[in-house]
C-alpha cells in the first residue's frame, strides 16, 4: 500500500466516511470536519501509525496531504 493509500484509510476512519477519497492536493479546505481539533487528532494518529515523530516546523508547514506524504517519505525512506 502506498503512503497515500494508508493515509486514506486513516482519513476514512477519522472522518467516519468510507467513501472519502483523498489526493495529494486535498487540504483542510476540502473536508468539512477538518478543523484544528481534528487536525491534532490526525497528526497524532499518523505519527503513531507510521511510527515517526514530526517537528513543530514540519507540522506548521503542511499545506496539503502531499506535504504530509513527503514528510513521511523522508522519515521512513
Amino acid at each position: 500500500m502506498s503512503i497515500l493509500e494508508e493515509l486514506q484509510d486513516i482519513f476514512r476512519d477519522i472522518f467516519d466516511d468510507e467513501e472519502l477519497v483523498i489526493s495529494e492536493e486535498t487540504s483542510a479546505a476540502d473536508i468539512d470536519d477538518w478543523d484544528s481539533l481534528v487536525n491534532i487528532q490526525l497528526m497524532v494518529t499518523i505519527c503513531k501509525h507510521f511510527d515517526v515523530r514530526m517537528t513543530t516546523q514540519e507540522i506548521s508547514g503542511f499545506e496539503n496531504v502531499g506535504d504530509i506524504v513527503d514528510c513521511i517519505k523522508g522519515k521512513i525512506g
Binding site: D13, I14, D16, V38, Q41, V44, T45, K48
Partner: peptide, 11 residues
C-alpha cells in the same frame, strides 16, 4: 493505547 482512545473519544 492513547491514540485508540483518542479516536474512540472523538467519535
Amino acid at each position: 493505547d492513547a491514540t485508540l482512545i483518542l479516536n474512540e473519544a472523538m467519535k
